[in-house]
Amino acid sequence: MTKTRAMLDRELTDINELILRIGSLVDAAIEHSMQALAQRDVDLARKVSADDAGVNALRFEIEEACLALIARQQPAASDLRAALAAFSIVTDLERMGDHAAGIARTVLHMGDEPLLKPLIDLPRMAEICREMLRLALQAYIQRDVEKAVLIIAMDDSVDALYTQIFREILSFMVEDPRTTSRGLYLMFAAHNLERIGDRVTNIVERILFMTSGELRELNPKVSKAVADLLE
């Protein structure tokens, strides 16, 4: 059968490229917010916070492109799922941008209070989150479910680190309540990273939906990290 629907294909490709673009903005935001935290770089933190507006604008641009594609090209089957998946993925990416901006704003709140402790697990968490994000973007573009499901186990590592950080900081605060505010700053940062990890697993769910049509929750409602802490 001859190939038709060049317009539809082009518009889907355009949406893919926009998703990659917003994905790399979010990746940079995570990287820079953690750098700002580690180096207490207030200017960089301000920049990350300000740049979030660009992520928000791009999100609406992508939603607009999906809306136009659905209204104009009347996609069906895998094309329809791809457009709906993109609409959903962009929401997750935009929220991840907010979480990175949240870390940056924490840096601004800290003023010149010294870090409670040297950063070890937080940068590891951030690195895993960024790796998850990069893998998710690749899997999305390549429609590669096998690659996408690797991300689920990585999120377990993020959750485990979060639990560990939470307990560690809690013990600081119990031992010396004067450390509470400095402890909370790091907990905020860890919480933001944990949420970023969960958002990436949402993207994995959408890749699964896009490729197979299956709608399945990969991320339990109460995240494992929180469940562990409540035990």
Binding site: M1, T2, T4, R5, A6, M7
Partner: peptide
Amino acid sequence: PIATLKIEDLMR
């Protein structure tokens, strides 16, 4: 429908 889509691609 297929001949229709071909004409539309051609118009583009």
